[in-house]
Design a protein around this nucleic acid. Structure first.
Lengths: 170, 170
DNA sequence: CTTGGAATGTCAACAAGACTGACGTATGCT
DNA sequence: AGCATACGTCAGTCTTGTTGACATTCCAAG
């Protein structure tokens, strides 16, 4: 399908010709890499009664302590029912604390307990280790490119959420 | 946690210092980008009775026509039972054809029918469109870096499968 | 040649985690 | 007072992953 019409990776002034083949390789790279990306935390979680959904919740609560349920919902892109199931078990197990908002009492602000922080550390240590290796292997210029492509691949709202998170740190 | 110990992105000779913060940004970029990556095909599939698993199967059957079930299993990284359910519906619906192996009659060789090819086209057109935009936005150097980091992030066996696929194409 | 083990694939049952829809409660705002 | 918002929950469904059990086929050792 659509074979050899454009020269592979040909670059003419500012225009970049991308063959279906190059794009497909990008797609497959994304697929295989994502598997590696989630593999280590998944292994840890499998031993406990938790799954990837718990990891995501814990990650973003750690990232933005005091965030509201609604906030988390938007970041994670799931329904409140789905998030609630996960959140409930985390609260029951004492990993997450839910505090009623001071200004707006309808809101619940979410925090990790010490135990929750410990799990987050364990999970993100594993994930960061892989990311660190990949970054080192590929080198700083590749890392910059990696990030640029990923940002361009996000939906607009997600790019917004991403940059907002990125900037609220430090 | 581990704040501001190393200067951000500091680079000293060949050694690259990576802060937890930089790594976490990479992790989040990966998370948000993957959502975008799957969003378009998912939207198409939602209208039909199919899901992401069907997309993956169709993609790799198209990529390597005549592949066996076992082969596909290894690439997709799921159990044979899980793949079988998906495959069965695809075969029933006439999108995939399963031919008993000539040399080894235990094996089933998988092919897309015309209808199957049509669906694959539709799905990958959508996914390629996003990838093309991202690649164009980011530029060729960024694309090279993107691929290098992703490859470094894969599990070893997946990197092997990836490069083998990559090379079997013209 | 037969027999037993390994490989391949199918069927059945179950669990996690997503979804929709409906509803209840507390709170905030006009 | 009345409507909107934020959150929680119950019930039911769907996709997609899992194990376990089983049938078929191949191959190699006796």
């Amino acid at each position: 399908m659509a074979e050899g019409q454009a020269p592979a990776g040909y670059r003419n002034e500012n225009l970049l010709f991308l063959t279906d083949e190059q794009l497909r390789q990008g797609i497959e790279a994304m697929f295989f890499a994502y598997r590696g990306f989630t593999a280590d935390p998944d292994r840890i979680l499998a031993d406990m009664a938790y799954g990837r959904a718990h990891h995501r919740a814990v990650h973003f609560i750690n990232r933005a302590p005091g965030t509201t349920v609604n906030n988390l919902l938007n970041i994670l892109g799931v329904t409140k029912q789905s998030l609630n199931r996960v959140l409930r078990t985390l609260i029951e197990d004492g990993l997450v604390e839910s505090r009623i908002g001071k200004a707006d009492k309808r809101e619940r602000h979410l925090f990790l307990t010490e135990e929750g922080k410990a799990l987050e550390q364990k999970l993100s240590d594993a994930q960061r280790a892989r990311m660190r290796m990949a970054f080192r292997d590929a080198g700083p210029d590749a890392v910059a490119g990696f990030r640029r492509v990923l940002e361009a691949m996000m939906d607009k709202e997600m790019r917004f959420a991403y940059t907002r998170l990125k900037d609220t740190t430090t």
